[in-house]
Design a protein around this nucleic acid. Sequence first.
DNA 1: GCGACAG
DNA 2: ATCTTGTCGC
Length: 220
Amino acid sequence: MNIQRPETWPTTVEDAMIIQNQLKSLVRTTDELETVKYVAGVDVGFKQNYTISQAAVAVLSFPDLTLQETAIAQRPTTFPYIPGFLSFREIPVILDVLEQLTITPDLIICDGQGIAHPRRFGLACHLGVLIDQPTIGAAKSLLIGKHDDLPAEKGSWTPLKNKGEIIGAVLRSRTNVRPLYISPGHRISLETSIDYVLNCTTKYRLPETTRWADKLASHT
DNA sequence: GCGACAG
DNA sequence: ATCTTGTCGC
């Protein structure tokens, strides 16, 4: 994949916001995926009192979800965690880890929001645009938006709305557990995003892709 | 101005 | 995100 590494990364939220507002125009939430043969999960963990960021990626075959390849990368943490600007903290090291892959995944499921973001440009959108690949945002908690209650059964979902727009879905990935917040990252629709997340989830709340990446990024 | 706030 | 053991419930 052609990774578009920015020449420089912003230092302030003001500059970061300018970048989000200009790159958001490149996001496409229509289905533009190849036949999905490989799905990847990426996640970032921290070391040495948060001074070192460690990213992990796990590529699984689809739909059987068998682990095919993994990679890990580390680099100094530069940007602080600021709600709405998570991508500037995690994407640099995520690009490092994706560069190591020999298999180009057809779809990447991210730990964080896609368009369910104040400026419709969450981590999954940012990553998707930089590598021009299909990405999905699958977050464990809410950043923005409101929604109705949803049934407790796995597979049920309800739209996540903000300012009159549907920005994602609150999805029950497993019966009787807290839901996941799903939103398109790039080159995929909300409906298709929900479909892939469910098809990548077996017996736990998180998709297998994310579970593998999580384990590698922290327990390593 | 007062809360909310991905990881 | 991360620090951490056992424990309650399906």
